[in-house]
Design a protein around this nucleic acid. Structure first.
Lengths: 145, 145
DNA sequence: CATGTCCATATCATTTTGATAGTGACTTCA
DNA sequence: TGAAGTCACTATCAAAATGATATGGACATG
């Protein structure tokens, strides 16, 4: 889709989608959040064509969600590590996963576990102001100007 | 992308992405969450080509996030309303918006307001078990089998 | 020096997209 | 009564994106 006019829209959701608005990018961020950093790790994990992976990694790097870092001079090898912006995308993915579990959870599913307690994570989005679960209270949009 | 092998992956994020893994679908869900229901409302709001809109609405309906409902017999007119699954997708969008505000928030942005208190919503994803913000504690994945 | 690893790029068929125009079933206005 | 407007699409078709496969280049290993 045409991301140009979307990115200067006043909607923060649309803004977010211009950087990470496709499935491959989100899956790359998922894998990166689980610790993958290298081209071939992503390729094998995702079964993605190398052409596409190159492009997606480049975009995510340009957008500031990944950082390309040389981890070997000889032979020259780069890896992709999450930036702060990339790390902060994880909650979106986890919440998307929670939705997927609830509505597309047939069969065996991977579960996300708190590494310290060992308990399965139960993700919820709340409004930090009211403490209410998002979606339980009506929302209004305030457009600028 | 090829959504077939993705949807029977064991990852709930990948499962979620097979239904709503593109920007248009998410924007349609955003608008639907704000109350839009009709073809032309979506078309005008999004500036989307009618061919694409038809397809996206059909997919979202098939996937069970929207429901097509006849609101006029003469002339025959249908509208699209959110199902429970569609409504429950809102937290994902709001959180994506929060990310967009933080990292792509240049210029004037729309804000999301609690309709009752009038205060701006501050969305956070937390683990309901530990109460901790998602991303502040290490996560492990438990794969089935 | 042959093979393997890693990070890609080249090529090209297939698929998806998006812009534009048109259609059908009406309603409303003059 | 007839012209124009509304709404929810479909048809057509050029342009762009995707994805499969092959290849390259720089090295390390056996």
């Amino acid at each position: 889709m045409d991301m140009k006019n979307l990115s200067d829209a006043s909607c923060p959701i649309a803004r977010g989608l211009t950087c990470v608005g496709d499935a491959w990018s989100m899956l790359i961020l998922r894998d990166a959040s689980l610790g993958l950093t290298r081209f071939d790790e992503f390729r094998k994990s995702l079964g993605i064509a190398p052409t596409i992976l190159t492009r997606r990694l480049a975009t995510l790097t340009e957008e500031g969600l990944l950082e390309r870092r040389r981890y070997s001079e000889r032979p020259p090898r780069d890896e992709y590590v999450l930036t702060a912006a990339g790390r902060d995308f994880l909650p979106v993915l986890i919440l998307l996963g929670a939705w997927g579990r609830q509505y597309r959870g047939e069969g065996r599913l991977a579960r996300y576990i708190d590494a310290e307690t060992g308990a399965e994570i139960e993700p919820v989005a709340v409004d930090a102001v009211t403490g209410a679960k998002i979606g339980t209270r009506p929302i209004r949009v305030a457009t600028p100007e």
